[in-house]
Design a protein around this nucleic acid. Structure first.
Length: 463
RNA sequence: GGUCCCAUCGUCUAGUGGCCUAGGACGUCGGCCUCUCACGCCGAAAACACGAGUUCGAACCUCGUUGGGACCA
């Protein structure tokens, strides 16, 4: 049974990179009918915050990355780590180190001065006595020589020399375990078979493998996926913009679009660009994950989002639109307008937020005129056009495009103007802007009463 | 600085020794459509980092150089 996990530490929001790591783990597990576990690595009490945990959980739920087990919290498992640390101590695979931070700092400086590596010099490794009254840390006994290598699923064989690794601390003097130790204990105990994580962890892997071996647990498969970079080609961080996945939600992105985008960042399936969740699960594999870092490209995300807006059913979009309209403070009193509005706007909006701002004028007759639009199209010269249109419009028994068109064509003939010159003032009168869906569509959505009210208001405004 | 990793259009990528005159997508530019704005459609520019080798043949294999990144300090 395949088992993967996503193990963020709640020291920050869930960002794009973390979300993609989670996604790959989720897709790989689902593709193989396996289990996806969520584990919160909150051992760093200083920096871990409850709000970050919430952000992570909410972000994953929003994206639809649902976990089968968890969330497990490392803070509740401290005793387990301690037991493991003392077990290694008892078995002679770890040792007590009494060196104080000051001494260590001194040693590090000296080593550096002599041009040596600033590794711990293993003074306490072969100490055969205990000092019951002195504080100590527990260090792992790293083999003095030999190599550790592993077969990374995405990168192939990676080898490290043991001399490069020093005797890392597994339990601090305050009795708290360290990162490289807790991950191993947890992954082993939870039966994780495939560890898919960012390649910033490659350097940790050999130490972890050594710990697996010392503990007598079987070693999982590793797959290190490249990090996501910002435009400046460095690791994605706060200064690259969105710090939380939920900001994308608030900006009006569809979770399906973001998931699709994230999946294609570092992974490809031939020439295919658009994937539903089901298709991703069906087609995802680690062998087509790339090795080089990918740069986050807002333009492409934007394109995918508009694609998904166009191709998602109207009711779903309408529900979202309503949410965004209300968030912008626009009361949606006439809900029956929602679907028609979506129909005409889904081709034009790149995000739901943008759609809401384009939809605002449909829901309130007291529209605001865009300044430039007003100056250009609501003038004494266009008043006649508006009046003619209003008069003609009032005589209509039924509202249909053909007869509305006829009114406009008549005005065109009488005034000797171009169609566009007649329509634009009407458009501004009805929407307040120079750009909108087709004028007959707008009239249809607005309905007789609103149209007359708005044209009339524009005429009075000119006077 | 040490260790490890990486390298195809601006960006995401296809490519696993002959199918490559290097394909697709976003973006850019040009055109068509058109009541505005979009959508859509058509077209264009745009890449195998460099140098050696292996081979009949290399984007693909090997080595080196250069560049980039991550981790540790």
């Amino acid at each position: 049974m395949i088992k993967t996990r996503f193990a963020p530490s709640p020291t920050g929001n869930l960002h794009i990179g973390g979300a993609r790591t989670a996604l790959f783990n989720y897709l790989f597990a689902k593709h193989n009918n396996g289990i996806f576990v969520l584990r919160i690595e909150d051992t760093d009490i200083e920096r871990s915050k409850e709000e970050y945990t919430q952000d992570i959980l909410e972000g994953l739920r929003w994206l639809g990355i649902l976990w089968d087990e968890g969330p497990l919290f490392q803070r509740e498992r401290m005793d387990i780590y301690r037991e493991h640390a003392y077990r290694l101590l008892k078995e002679g695979l770890a040792y007590r180190c009494y060196c104080t931070p000051e001494v260590l700092e001194e040693k590090r400086k000296n080593a550096l001065k002599e041009g040596k590596k600033p590794n711990y010099d293993r003074t306490c490794r072969d100490l055969n006595m205990e000092y019951p009254d002195r504080p100590y840390v527990i260090r792992f006994k790293t083999p003095l020589e030999g190599q550790v290598s592993f077969n990374d699923i995405v990168r192939g064989k990676i080898t490290f020399n043991c001399e490069e690794l020093d005797d890392l601390v597994i339990l601090r003097s305050d009795n708290t375990p360290t990162y490289n130790f807790t991950v191993v204990v947890d992954d082993a105990l939870m039966g994780i078979t495939h560890i898919i994580r960012g390649d910033d962890h490659i350097n940790n892997t050999p130490r972890q493998i050594l710990i697996y071996k010392a503990l007598g647990y079987s070693i999982p498969e590793f797959a290190h996926v490249p990090l996501i970079h910002g435009k400046d080609r460095t690791r994605l961080s706060k200064r690259h913009g969105a710090t939380s996945l939920l900001e994308y939600k608030n900006e009006g992105f569809l979770p399906e679009a973001l998931m699709n985008y994230l999946a294609r960042l570092g992974w490809a399936y031939k020439d295919q660009e658009v994937f539903s969740r089901e298709e991703l699960i069906e087609k995802f594999d680690l062998s087509h994950v790339g090795k080089s870092p990918a740069i986050f490209d807002m333009d492409k995300l934007s394109w995918l989002n508009s694609y998904y807006i166009k191709n998602t059913d109207d009711r779903t979009i309408a529900k979202n639109l309503e949410y965004f309209l209300e968030k912008e403070g626009i009361a949606v009193d006439r809900k029956e307008k929602l679907i028609p509005v979506v129909k005409s706007l889904k081709e034009r909006a790149k995000t739901l937020k943008e759609m809401a701002s384009m939809a605002a004028y449909f829901f309130n007759d007291n529209i605001e005129y865009d300044e430039k639009a007003r100056e250009k199209f609501l003038t004494p010269q266009t008043r006649d056009i508006l009046e003619s249109f209003l008069n003609g419009f009032k005589t209509l028994h039924t509202l249909d495009e053909a007869s509305e068109k006829k009114i406009i064509e008549d005005i065109v003939r009488q005034t000797n103007k171009k169609v566009v010159d007649v329509i634009q003032p009407i458009r501004v009168a009805l929407t307040g802007r120079t750009a909108s869906p087709g004028i007959f569509e707008v009239i249809d959505i607005l309905g007789r009463e609103s149209v007359e009210k708005r044209i009339d208001r524009a005429i009075r405004w000119i006077k």
